[in-house]
Amino acid sequence: MSLRRFILKRLLSIVPILFGVSVITFALVHLTPGDPISQMAATNPHMTAADEAQMRARYGLDGPIWEQYLTWMGNVLTGDFGEVVSSGQDVSSVIIARLPETIALGLFGWLFGLLIAIPTGIYAAIKKDQLADTVSRFVALSGISIPNFWLGLMLILIGALWLEIWTVLPPSRLPLYHPQMLFYLILPGITIGTAAAASIMRVMRTSMAEELNKEYVTAARAKGLPERQVVLKHVLRNSLISVVTLAATLTASIVAGSVVVEVVFNWPGLGREFIDAINQREINLIMAITLFTGVFIVLANLLADILYAVLDPRIRYE
């Protein structure tokens, strides 16, 4: 019951957060020069200042910023995210088309990160200060330091051009839920998940090593439990608590990472759309993507909070 109230409370708290995010984003976009109309004008010698003004009025890009914001806000509250000026598409249809692609990619990257990071983190903690630990720490450090566009290019070079296991372009004719897409998620997933994996692994290792020193571990061993059970049952659950925090914060960096990864792997997601939107000053699209990302990150953190309670019975939400 208290958990339900907690979730409800947290969900409500999204509202002011999103409001703040929308104000800041709106202001930032408007503080940077240029809008879709000036984009058109910049390369078109036929377009006079009068033409520009006329078009701006037609697309509702004139008037003071607060007025534009209020109009935008009013529309959003009725579920209308506006349209993309340059293409005339509904912003919501763009989001609906692209969001699943990014979610699939992000989720896969995230899962990949966790699947690699948690076992290696455990292993490194158990073999602390031994060769395996040193190697895995080195690999993790590299994982954090490698820029993901470079990693992506290397993976394409090796996986698609040398080994010819994958294709350079994802099979765009297949629907996202086709099983074969899983195979094509591997390389971008690795790219997007590597940095996350590296930092999760480091935290996993540290927190595991710390937990391993605790007395309940000795107590569990003193019960005669096999080491596997000691580590995977007793230590793991305790060390996961700090990993959950990190994994939640990593949602933001995975979202950010998807921007680059989608370009390199030609993945038709929201990240790629976001870059274009920024370059073309498509304010409605920028706003919508920012809001969705905001919701996503808040939800990830909420999920983390709920997971805490699941992992650690001492945590109760009032």
Binding site: L153, I156, V263, V264, F265, N266, P268
Partner: peptide, 11 residues
């Protein structure tokens, strides 16, 4: 195929 990235297109 829509491939904005130059190197992907070349690849």
């Amino acid at each position: 195929e829509i491939v904005p990235d130059d190197s992907s297109r070349a690849g």
